[in-house]
Amino acid sequence: MYYFLVFHSLLRWLVLISLLYAIYKAYTGYTTNRTFTARDNAARHWTATIAQTQMLLGIFLYTQSALIKYFWRNFSEAIHQQQITFFALIHISLMVIATVILTVGSGMAKRKETDKEKFKTMLIWFIIALIIIFIAVPWPFSPLANRPWLRAVF
């Protein structure tokens, strides 16, 4: 189980890197009136796919977590414990919302008629998803719940 958590922690960096790259491609494409290339489309597609994979892994971890099971069995006590509440309610909810926004934005961008519309749609939806993800990640400096930058593999 711990190895899944380590993989989930590592995969977040791939999600963030791919999302930042896709936003960069969308921004430069939109501002320079570039053609929406196969590479731009791949950035759109793989960013959504990586985020969806991360979400599925997160849902698996959520259903197996002793912390989450404790939260739901002892709701009236656990709701007052900030870190437990963060993972049991806030983290999972915001990450699912961010992944849905990313997926919807990716699908909408794919179906737009013009290249400019594709870049604009991708840019707007992906930035919204990024903001939500930044709020929901348990950064080492977060007052809600904090975790290390990288989990140790052993």
Rank of each mutant, 00 (worst) to 15 (best):
I59R: 00
R34T: 07
T53S: 13
F86W: 06
Y27E: 01
L61T: 11
Y70D: 13
H80Q: 11
L94K: 02
Q52P: 00
L16R: 01
Q52W: 00
Q83A: 12
Y62A: 06
G29T: 13
Q64M: 14
E77G: 01
L102R: 02
G105H: 12
I84P: 01
K25G: 00
H45S: 00
T31K: 14
L14P: 02
R73Y: 07
G29Q: 10
G58Q: 05
T85V: 03
L14I: 14
I92A: 10
Y70A: 12
V15H: 02
F75W: 12
F86E: 06
R73F: 05
A42Q: 10
Q83E: 13
T103Y: 05
A78H: 05
D40P: 04
R39P: 00
L14N: 08
N33D: 13
R44L: 12
A26F: 07
Q81G: 00
Y27A: 15
F75K: 13
L102M: 15
L56T: 03
T47H: 03
A51M: 13
A38I: 05
M95W: 07
L94G: 07
L57N: 05
V96I: 15
T32C: 02
R39K: 12
T37G: 01
T53L: 15
S76T: 14
A78R: 06
L89D: 00
I68Q: 10
T31E: 11
S93I: 04
T28V: 15
T28P: 07
I84Q: 08
T28R: 14
Y70N: 12
M95N: 15
I101D: 06
T103E: 04
K25A: 11
I90F: 10
V15A: 04
H45L: 04
L19C: 12
L94W: 08
M55Q: 03
